[in-house]
Lab assay of single mutants.
Amino acid sequence: EINVTSHGEEQAKHWIELAKRMNLDVEVEIHGDKIIITIK
């Protein structure tokens, strides 16, 4: 399980695309200006 804290939408999209390509599950939480991505 990987937790990524992203401070930008572009960076977040990059991680989500990467996870989808690798067929991994992704959870995205938004806390103000921080985007927390959990890849399982």
Score class of each variant (00 low, 15 high):
Lys20Val: 14
Arg21Trp: 15
Leu24Pro: 00
Lys34Pro: 00
Ala19Trp: 15
Met22Ser: 02
His14Phe: 15
Ile35Met: 02
Asn23Leu: 14
Ala12His: 06
Gly8His: 10
Ile36Tyr: 07
Thr5Ile: 12
Ile2Gly: 07
Ile39Gly: 00
Ile39Trp: 10
Gly32Glu: 08
Lys40Ile: 04
Lys13Glu: 04
Lys20Ile: 14
Val26Asn: 00
Glu17Leu: 15
Gln11Asn: 08
Ile30Arg: 05
Gly8Pro: 08
His7Trp: 14
Glu27Trp: 11
Val4Gln: 07
Val26Gln: 00
Ile30Thr: 02
Lys20Met: 14
Ser6Ile: 14
Asn23Tyr: 13
Glu1Ala: 10
Ile35Gln: 01
Ile37Ser: 00
Gln11His: 07
His14Gly: 04
Gly32Trp: 12
Asp25Asn: 10
His7Phe: 12
Gln11Glu: 08
Thr38Pro: 00
His31Thr: 09
Ile30Lys: 02
Gly32Thr: 05
His14Met: 13
Trp15Tyr: 03
Ile36Met: 03
His7Thr: 08
Glu17Ile: 15
Glu29Ser: 09
Lys40Arg: 11
Leu18Ile: 06
Val28Pro: 00
Val26Cys: 04
Lys13Trp: 14
Ile30Asn: 01
Leu24Asn: 01
Asp33Gln: 07
Ile35Asp: 00
Leu18Pro: 03
Leu18Gly: 02
Ile16Ala: 04
Val28Phe: 05
Gly32Cys: 13
Thr38Phe: 12
Asp33Cys: 14
Val28Asn: 00
Glu1Ile: 12
Ala12Ser: 04
Ser6Trp: 11
Val4Ser: 07
Ala19Tyr: 15
Ile36Val: 06
Glu27Ser: 12
Val28Ala: 01
Glu29Leu: 10
Asp25Gly: 05
Lys34Ile: 12
Val28Gln: 00
Thr38Leu: 08
Glu17Cys: 15
Ile36Ala: 01
Gly8Ser: 11
Lys34Ala: 06
Ser6His: 09
Ile39Met: 04
Thr38Ala: 02
Ala12Cys: 15
Ile2Ser: 08
Glu17Val: 15
Glu10Asp: 11
Asn3Met: 13
Leu18Lys: 04
Glu1Ser: 11
Ile39Glu: 00
Ser6Asp: 05
Met22Lys: 02
Ile30Phe: 09
Arg21Ile: 10
Ile37Ala: 01
Gly8Gln: 10
Lys34Gln: 06
Leu18Asn: 02
Met22Gln: 03
Asp33Glu: 08
His14Tyr: 15
Asp25Glu: 12
Val26Gly: 01
Ile35Pro: 00
Glu29Tyr: 13
Ala19Cys: 15
Glu10Leu: 08
Val26Leu: 03
Val28Ile: 10
Arg21Gln: 04
Lys40Tyr: 11
Val4Trp: 10
Met22Tyr: 14
Gly32Asp: 09
Thr38His: 06
Met22Ile: 04
Glu10Val: 07
Asp25Cys: 13
Glu9Leu: 14
Glu1Cys: 15
Glu1Arg: 05
Leu18Phe: 13
His14Gln: 10
Asn3Phe: 12
Gln11Val: 08
Asn23Pro: 02
Lys40Asp: 01
Ile30Glu: 01
Gln11Ala: 10
Glu1Gly: 09
Ile37Arg: 00
Gly32Phe: 11
Thr5Val: 09
Lys40Cys: 12
Thr38Met: 06
Gln11Ile: 11
Glu17Lys: 15
Glu9Val: 12
Thr38Gln: 02
Ile16His: 02
Ile36Thr: 05
Arg21Thr: 06
Gly8Tyr: 13
Trp15Val: 03
Ile2Asp: 05
Leu24Gly: 01
Leu24Ser: 01
Asn3Ile: 14
Thr5Arg: 03
Ser6Pro: 06
Lys13Met: 08
Lys20Arg: 12
Glu10Lys: 09
His31Pro: 01
Leu24Asp: 00
Ile39Gln: 01
Ala19Gln: 03
Thr5Asn: 09
Ile37Phe: 06
Trp15Arg: 08
Lys34Glu: 04
Met22Asn: 02
Ala19Gly: 02
Met22Trp: 15
Thr38Asp: 01
Val26Asp: 00
Glu1Met: 11
Lys13Val: 05
Lys20His: 07
Thr5Asp: 06
Ile36Pro: 00
Thr5Gly: 06
Leu24Met: 03
Ile30Val: 07
Ala12Thr: 07
Asp25Pro: 07
Ile35Cys: 03
His31Leu: 09
Ile39Cys: 08
Asp33Lys: 06
Gln11Met: 11
Glu1Asn: 08
Val26Ala: 02
Thr5Lys: 05
Val4His: 05
Ile35Lys: 00
Thr38Asn: 03
Trp15Ser: 03
Glu17Arg: 15
Glu27Ala: 07
Ile30Tyr: 07
Thr5Pro: 06
Trp15Phe: 07
Gly32Ser: 10
Ile39Tyr: 04
Thr38Cys: 12
Thr5Trp: 10
Ile37Gly: 00
Glu10Pro: 05
Glu17Ser: 13
Met22Gly: 02
Ser6Met: 11
His31Val: 10
Arg21Leu: 13
Met22Ala: 02
His7Val: 11
Ile35Thr: 01
Lys13Gly: 04
Glu9Pro: 10
His31Asn: 07
Lys20Leu: 14
Ile16Lys: 06
His31Ile: 12
Ile39Asn: 00
Ile39Thr: 01
Val26Ser: 01
Ala12Phe: 13
Val28Glu: 00
Ile35His: 01
Ile2Met: 07
Ile16Thr: 06
Gly8Lys: 06
Gln11Lys: 10
Ile2Pro: 05
Asn23Cys: 09
Lys13Leu: 07
His31Gly: 03
Ile16Phe: 11
Ile37Asn: 00
His7Glu: 10
Ile30Trp: 07
Lys20Glu: 05
Gly32Val: 09
Val4Phe: 10
Thr38Arg: 13
Val4Pro: 05
Ile2Glu: 05
Leu24Ile: 08
His31Gln: 08
Glu9Met: 13
